[in-house]
Structures are given as C-alpha cells and as structure tokens.
Design a protein around this nucleic acid. Structure first.
Lengths: 329, 329
DNA sequence: ATTAATAATGGTAGCGCTAACATTTTGCTG
DNA sequence: CAGCAAAATGTTAGCGCTACCATTATTAAT
C-alpha cells in the first residue's frame, strides 16, 4: 500500500492537516516543522494523491483542451503554447481532438467536465446547441481560441475573414483577376470558409468572380498537389491560387517544382499560416503568418488570471496576423 | 451545486449504488430500472464526478504519456496512435514533454504518479537513476517506446542501430566512400546517436571513416540547410550525407534546390523517419520509414491488455522499419 | 509579568463515489 | 404454489485529502 498523508503525519509527529499545508502552502508552516515533514515525506516515500486532494478541494488543476486535430501542426503549436504556460503554473492539460466533428466536441466537453477541470480551452466559436448550452452554464473559465467573435467567456484569436481579405487584396494588387480559392473541406474546417468569405468579398467588390474549389478531403501535401492539377485543368484562366493553408500550398509548390510548372509565372500560389516549410521552398511561399504559439500562451495566461480571480482588461484578444510576401505570389 | 449521484438516486427512487451500476456496468441492472435511472440523470442534469469515482475505486483510467518533444511531428504521430486506441477504450491521456531532459522526465513521472495513472508510457529506455527506480517499483504497467532493448516492462519500438546500419549499407552499395553523418544534438536525441553507432560500425567494417557532424542544436529545416553548407565546406571529399532525421534532410534538400546544388550528383542525401515531405520534394528523399502511428497503437493495445490482466505473448515488440529509396541517394 | 494580538497547529466532518457484503426480489422447477 | 437458486438492489464504510473552525503557542506591547 502506498503511504498516505497520515503515515507522513505520524512519522513527523504532526497532524495530517499540517502535512497538507506543507504541500499546499508551505509558508504558513514554521520552517522547523516543515523540515520535519519534508524529511518524513522522503523517509516514507510519500506520493501525493492528487485525486483525493482534488475531490476534497473541489479544484483539480486540470485544464481541458479540445482541438480539432492533432495531425495539424498548427494546433500542436497552440498546444505547445498552452502547455508551456500551464505547466509552469502547475496545471495539467487534458487533451482531446474532435476530428472536426462538433458532436464529438460536445461529448468530449461532457467527459472532461467529469474531471472538474479548472478551465476549458476549446477551438473556435461554433459548437452544437447542446455544447453551447453546457459551456454557457459552466462555472469554470472557458477560452475559445483561434477565431474572434461572439464568445462565451474568453476569446483569443485572429480575424479570419480579414485574413482572407488581406490576401485577396494583395493578389489583386499583383494584377491577378482570376483567383481560385482552394480548401480541403470547408464544411469541417470552417475557419478556412471564413477566410474564403473575406476573399470573396474583396473580389466581388472588384467585380470579379471568386470560384471555390473544395477538395472534399482533409489532406495535406498530396491534396495540394492534386488541387494544382485540378485548377490548371478546370480553370484555364486562373492566374493565382489562394490556398486555405500552407500544407496545401506547399504541396502544390513542391508538385509544381517536380512538374516544371513555373510559379508564379504560370500560376501564382498563396497560403495561410506561415509554416516554416513555406520559407524553405523555392520560390518562397507568400502567406499569412498566424501567431499560433502566442495564441496558446495568451490563452493560458488569461485563463490562469481568471482562475485566480484576477481582473482582465478585456475578454477578447486579437492576436493579429501578418502578410509574409515570398516569391510564389 | 452540481447534482450528485444521490440526487439522481432520489429522483429515480433507487439507491446510489444502483446509479453507480448504471454508469459502470449497465448490464447488471434491470432494463426498466436502468431506463428510470437514465431518465433521472437527464432530468437532474447529472455530470459524473470522475475524481470521486477514481478515488473510491483506486483506478483512474488515466494514462501518463511522456515524450521528449511536442514540436517533433514524429512524437505527435505516436501520440495520435496512442490516443486513438486509448480513447476508444475510455482512457484519458495525461501528456507531457521532457524537452529531451531526463531530470525533467523524472519529475514528470513523480507528478503523474500522483494522479494514480492506470499505466505509464515513456519514450526511450534511458532514464536517470531516480526515474529508473521509481518506474521499476511502480505497480502499474509501464511501456517504454520507440527503441528496443532491456526494458522495465513493455517495450515497443525499433532497432535504431540496425536502422543506421541499413542506411549505411545502402549508401555503401551505391558506391559512396565518404559519408558524413549529420545529427542535430546526439547528446539529447540519443536515438540519433544509436543510429550513428550502427552507421559507423558498417563503415568501419568496410575500412572507411565515419565522420559525425553534430550541429549542436535541435533544429529542423534551417539546421539541415546550414548542415549542407558546412559539409560542402568542411568535407570536400564527402559524396553523401546521412542525416539523423528527415527534417534535417528535407531542409538540406530544399536548400540544395535553391542554391542549385545537384542532388545526388554533387552530394547524395539520406534521412530517417519517412515523413510525408520526403515524398514530395524533388528529388524524392531516400530515407527509412518508421511506423510511428503503429508504435502508438500497439503500445496502447498492449498496455490495455496488461491493465485488464490479459496475457501478452511477448513483452517486446519490434515494429521494424523499411528502407524507402528515392532519388536523393 | 500580563494581556492582546497574531501565528501555528489540530480535530472533525465531508468531498462523491464504489467495494464488499447483506438483503430483497424474481424466475423457475416440480 | 412452495421452495430454491440466481438476479437485482440496498446498506455500510471508507478511499485520501482539505475546508472550516477550534485550540494552543508565540510574539509584541504595555
């Protein structure tokens, strides 16, 4: 049997609560006593039972984190940002991915609530009705990240429609008049759809059409490569492709290289996210960089502030984005 | 206040334990009673308290997973494999990364043990003394993944020295006599060092030298690009580079493309891992594919079997690897 | 020294659940 | 329809810890 706090207490000849105090608020225990308790902890090989502590104190130091996918490096970087900050403050992340399925998200939220998390971090502002209700009624801090809008509690992200507009304006400025927007699956990755909305808005305002090619699969390099072929075949007038993300764009660029398709001369290529690979391909990818790690870090900071009851200047943080101009468009 | 099992029990006019049974082993409760309880659960909006349940039953359904890094796609894929299997069986992963620091690993193990995990999954076979002792004395199943060797309990991975030998033999077979092995930081990523050991063994057996260029930083594309320049400058006789991983190799390949350095004519390039990018660069990367997702899945399957007391045919699983020949070497 | 304030420590109860055993109900046989 | 085994449900106690309040020790001020 694992030794408990009572064994430590007996060994140190103090009461259990004093041991608890040494563990949780050492500065209220007299140094001499504390030393005796710490020695006892070492001696009996005590391992703290966090489950019991969390149950008794009704606070688990768990942070539930729900992202759409763990295959997408973008979310990994966000998680890294969250993790670095939360861990520093002694919080443990409970991680799950929805596979871009809102019903699964709801189920995950339910499951996670069973662990009495100190807070929840979810991706995006769209949830199904049940999930929206649960989150709204939840007492713990909720952070909705990645996009900006009408949030339940905390909101850290960037303006996707504006990012779409930004790139569309840039491509227009470069003289492109036939631009195809290529996404992997807008129904699931709806933030790609929001960027498309912005893109279309700008093009239509300029009296242009904004065709959308949805590849219908969540793919990466391979899907981007296929998309390039499809655009060249189906949209002969197209002079530029605005890809929903850098994975697709990089896949297209690498494919172009192999096939000897000249970029940007034959077709210009633009992406979104600012992944490292974009800076290493030739030509360098024109894209929009998103501060993914920063989103995670800020979300963690604000969530912790909320947990600890500190006031925040604002519930909403626009982390912004930047146009990164390469040679590809 | 959140409703508890007692509120549900009152509503359904059964005892608390019956509610507990509906939740944990529904088939021992008569369907009519079960339906009444389930209705009551919905009615009062009951959310199960997993902390209390875990404490009472002394089993948390937590799986502690410790990897060196979350920035490396390789471990992400392993985690994906673990996750998919564990989640299907109702286990929740507690994730942490060591930053390739064994002391941090030890501390993480200690912390995680406080959550009474049902099992631990750690990366690699090397631990510091304290960690080795803690893990050895631990009652829960332990899985050490990625590499093969003398493990504490379960072991799922591949033979890194043999992977190094495999690539070295291939390069020798291609006529290369001056091959530089390039790693990012063998002291931390010691599995890259194991592959180098195998590589060197083969070269020395052939009467050749096996220079090692350690870039001294955990980098990805950029480090690979720098490494290529260093090799061309410092090892004028080199005809091939054996990179410790595909990130470095891809970085070098993309850099070569930009600089107009001909691969494999001027210098051949080989990698390790079989990342998707390797199949999309031109020339395609010659590499060794590791079944990363499979390692995760198998580890999860075996851990679950162990938890549930099922016998395993073997404690060690060699997932093997494959030489993937591209045009880069 | 005496008192009042503060600091340090302790006792008790209970967090919400489940294990273990006890009891009741049900279904079946003859 | 008695009698019995099996199935279903209930009772009690306790998992290991911390909140809350009570008590005791220490310090400072007079």
């Amino acid at each position: 049997m694992q030794p408990t706090i009572a064994d430590v207490a007996m060994e140190a000849r103090v009461s259990a609560i004093t041991v608890s105090r040494v563990l949780n608020s050492p500065d209220v225990v007299r140094p001499a006593t504390r030393a005796r308790v710490e020695a006892a902890i070492d001696k009996v090989g005590y391992v703290r039972n966090m489950l019991a502590g969390s149950l008794a104190s009704a606070s688990s130091r768990f942070i539930a984190v729900i992202v759409p996918s763990l295959s997408n490096i973008v979310f990994i970087e966000v998680i890294n940002g969250l993790q670095s900050e939360f861990e520093r403050q002694g919080y443990q992340i409970l991680l799950a991915n929805t596979g871009y399925d809102l019903d699964r998200e709801c189920q995950l939220v339910r499951t996670f609530l069973g662990w009495s998390p100190s807070a929840l971090v979810v991706t995006g502002l769209r949830h199904n009705d049940a999930c929206q209700r649960i989150l709204s009624e939840c007492d713990s801090p909720i952070a909705e990240i990645m996009e900006l809008g009408d949030a339940i509690d905390l909101n850290i992200g960037l303006d996707h429609p504006e990012a779409g507009r930004c790139m569309a304006r840039y491509l227009l400025g470069k003289g492109h008049r036939n631009i195809v927007y290529v996404a992997a699956q807008v129904a699931r990755d709806y933030r790609a759809g929001l960027r498309y909305d912005g893109h279309r808005e700008v093009l239509e305002a300029a009296g242009l059409r904004a065709p959308l090619l949805d590849m219908g699969q969540l793919g990466q390099f391979e899907t981007g490569a296929q998309a390039l072929d499809r655009v060249l075949a189906d949209y002969p007038d197209a002079s530029a492709i605005h890809f929903a993300n850098d994975d697709l764009a990089a896949g297209a660029l690498l494919h172009a290289q192999r096939q000897g398709i000249r970029v940007p001369e034959t077709i210009a290529i633009a992406g979104f996210n600012g992944l490292p690979i974009g800076q290493h391909v030739t030509p360098r990818l024109t894209t929009i960089t998103s501060p993914r790690h920063r989103i995670g870090r800020l979300a963690a900071e604000q969530v912790i502030a909320r947990i600890e009851g500190r006031a925040l200047s604002s519930n909403q943080t626009d982390v912004s984005f930047e146009l990164a101009i390469g040679e590809s468009a």
